[in-house]
Design a protein around this nucleic acid. Structure first.
Length: 159
DNA sequence: GCCAACGTTGGC
DNA sequence: GCCAACGTTGGC
């Protein structure tokens, strides 16, 4: 099992939105590295830290779970979509995604500032300067520590 | 294949 | 709103 961190702007799609809809196709990712993580490396059941970017403050606010196998992002075929890609075809999709389901909100969200001040968690790629990647792998060690600091006991025991 | 120009991300 | 970092595009 792998662990991940996924970024989302709360103005666009927040952890509360995910809680409401229960499950969401992670459409609109247009970065090859992020796509490859979803396409090649994610497996149903993997857990992800849900991170709010462009938020006040930015930080980790919840947990989500990979809830589907990878499949082509339908928005790439839709001329009306802002994510339409004229170079993609149904025969040769360029963009792939997975669904994420809601697992829980953190009792105590962890701001980016707090992450950076932690000697262990500051190793996470989201803390490195200039890291814009919207999907990154997370070490089990880091995932567990986030759960512990965020008082998500259930998540720790679950594993 | 190089690289300048341009666009995007996202913290601050 | 600013701007550093970094990805993509396209002329050559």
């Amino acid at each position: 099992m792998s662990h991940w961190l996924i970024k989302s702007e709360p103005d666009v799609f927040s952890i509360d939105d995910l809680a409401k809809v229960k499950q969401e196709p992670w459409s609109g990712v247009r970065n090859y590295q992020a796509r490859n993580f979803m396409w090649k490396e994610m497996r149903e059941g993997d857990l992800a830290l849900f991170y709010h970017s462009n938020a006040k403050p930015p930080g980790i606010v919840g947990i989500a779970q990979v809830a589907s196998e990878p499949y082509p992002d339908p928005t790439q075929f839709d001329p009306a979509s802002e994510y339409f890609d004229p170079k993609a075809s149904e025969d040769k999709p360029r963009w792939w995604l997975v669904d994420f389901s809601f697992v829980g909100k953190l009792v105590k969200p962890l701001s980016l500032d707090e992450l950076k001040q932690d000697p262990i968690l500051s190793e996470m790629s989201v803390c490195q300067r200039g890291t814009r990647l919207s999907i990154t792998p997370v070490l089990l060690e880091h995932f567990k520590k986030v759960c512990r600091l965020a008082k998500s006991e259930k998540l720790i025991n679950k594993k």
